[in-house]
Simulated assay, not measured.
Amino acid sequence: MAKHIFQLYVYIFTILQVSCESKSCNVSKTTMVEVKRCPKTAEEWNIAASLKNCSAVHQSCVPSYEFKYHCVKNGNSTILLEVCGPVWRSAGYCVEYNEAGHILQDNYNENCTIFSKPCSRTYISTDIYKYQGCYELVTSDTPIDREKRKHSWGERITIDKIILVGVTIILSLVLLAFIMYKKRAHIARINKNAIRFLSGPGRYTEQV
């Protein structure tokens, strides 16, 4: 049982580590092109993806089948971009392309779950065309805004690392508590059998 719990712990830790990993990919910036509009339907998306042919781009960030076409806003929400990059799993926010970090990421200022046509609480970045509200652009961009967006990638990675460490500590404490409980239960069984053996006739048999 303890072995299974440990295996589960390792599996959860691995999943959390992968999900918090940066999907930064320098090559993605070379595929970036400004566009006037993004696809509105699955058909339009598939046509645009076929023309972009992201799987043919030479890169070593992810397997070629995970290097996908995207159409999203830039980090300042001032232009629309077509770009190839690793698929990103959003936590219910509009996805953007951070030019400084060369990464697709959530824009935490745009919670698309509260839009009139809301997004799912989790969705993959290649489904963003389903949530057209994420393509609305801002009308102004101040130097302060640009500076904030420039550092947003690093801040997001820091937050993810804090979450990963916190969850890892909690799982470690749970695993330790379980091991201690099993150890005490085993000792209690041994003591019980010893008392039974010493207090009466009969053959001693350890109960596992």
Rank of each mutant, 00 (worst) to 15 (best):
S50P: 01
C61S: 05
R121K: 14
R37G: 03
D106Q: 05
K29C: 05
I12W: 07
K23N: 07
H102G: 00
S125M: 02
T139F: 07
I79L: 14
D160W: 04
T78V: 05
P86E: 02
D145A: 07
E96H: 11
P63R: 04
C84F: 06
S90H: 02
D145H: 15
Q105T: 13
Y135D: 03
D106N: 15
L176R: 12
I159W: 13
G133F: 13
S120A: 13
S24M: 05
K40P: 01
K161H: 09
N111Q: 08
V138A: 10
I114N: 07
N111H: 09
I15H: 04
E82K: 06
N46D: 13
T78Q: 09
P118I: 13
P63E: 04
V95T: 00
H151K: 14
A177E: 14
N191I: 09
T158E: 11
F6E: 08
L198W: 11
M180K: 13
W153N: 03
T205L: 06
I144K: 15
D127L: 11
T41E: 03
Y108M: 03
S28W: 02
Y204W: 09
I12C: 09
I15G: 04
A185I: 05
T142C: 07
G154A: 10
S55N: 08
N46Q: 15
Y135G: 00
V35L: 07
A185G: 05
F6H: 14
Y129A: 00
I47C: 05
R189D: 10
T126E: 05
A91F: 10
K3V: 15
A188K: 15
F13I: 03
C134I: 04
Y65I: 05
S50N: 10
N74K: 06
Y129E: 03
Y93C: 01
V174Y: 10
L104P: 00
Y135T: 03
A49K: 08
R89P: 06
E21M: 11
E206W: 08
C94Y: 06
V83P: 00
I114L: 12
H151R: 10
I15D: 02
F13S: 05
Q59V: 08
E110V: 13
L81G: 01
H151T: 11
C119L: 07
L16V: 10
A49V: 04
M180D: 13
H186T: 10
D160F: 12
A177G: 03
C25A: 04
I128Y: 01
H70I: 00
G202Y: 10
Y123A: 00
H58R: 13
Y9F: 10
T168G: 14
L198E: 12
E43T: 12
V35I: 08
V18A: 08
V138P: 01
T122S: 14
N26F: 12
K150W: 06
N74M: 09
I15M: 07
T78N: 05
T41M: 05
